[in-house]
Amino acid sequence: MNIIEVNHINKSFGAVRALNDIKFSVKEGEIFGLIGPDGAGKTTLFRLFTTLLLPDKGQIFINNKNVVKHYKEIRHIMGYMPGRFSLYQDLSVEENLQFFATIFQSSIEENYDLIKPIYSQIEDFKKRRAGALSGGMKQKLALSCALIHKPQILVLDEPTTGVDSVSRKEFWEILHQLKEKGITIVVSTPYMDEAGLCDRVALIQKGRILSIDTPLNIEKSFPKHLYAIKTKDMHKLIHDLEKYQYTHSTFPFGQFVHYTDKRNEFNIRDVYDYLEKNSHIQISIDKIKAGIEDCFMELMINQEEK
């Protein structure tokens, strides 16, 4: 069953078209990811379906209810963790949690089980002012506050931005535990590698959705043969591949350069010969499967060409 339906949403701020004909749905109990850079429209979209903004055009339904008409009900079944820390800095950890429980006519005790795995990690600091917490602890408190009224849907706007890769992994483990408890999760992130941790993702760029599917299907739909190339001099390699007449795309990926060819039919030996002719040594070329980041960039190139 679809718990969220977004139908042809448009939203502009002055001359800026933040969202352009956005359409997707989220199934009950899944982790749905919105993957895209800053300025793609992720936050605007979140504000629309958390009832904080009105669309110019189109409708959003949650549990088959129009969010504009039924905003009061919708707010009760949603937990929202905004991108910017927005708890009360001058209240203590415990007071913040109590405050959010109270406005939803609940109490910390009533839903303690749900937040326990997260809240127990900061409970030792419950008398400390929220403003004096470290970044990681603030994040855990914000998540606890978003969950304290036991929402059906949890909406997280870039919860892992600026967080180191180990803490990011730990945060995703928490999200998977919440999913096990039946909570539907909609999460946005600029980190392409987090797409694989979602059940389905929408890739979004400049207010438009580039693709929606499971991460695996998106990767499978990569339209080109993809190669990871490495030689001794990586800077020269990037430079030489950019000049090569048959290059469709060439992007550095850590120790490798990912390469696609303009031609549909070709022998990769051509590329090898070209590099050898340009005095590269220790050349290795391997055919690889595309990741989400490869797909995102390919879709971006196609969009620019349109």
Binding site: G36, T161, M300
Partner: peptide, 24 residues
Amino acid sequence: DEPTGGVDPITRRQFWKLIYEAAG
């Protein structure tokens, strides 16, 4: 200090090109 946070993957790589140029 975390110069590339939040930008799209193509821009991120263009940024690193500037870094290489400066280092060069």
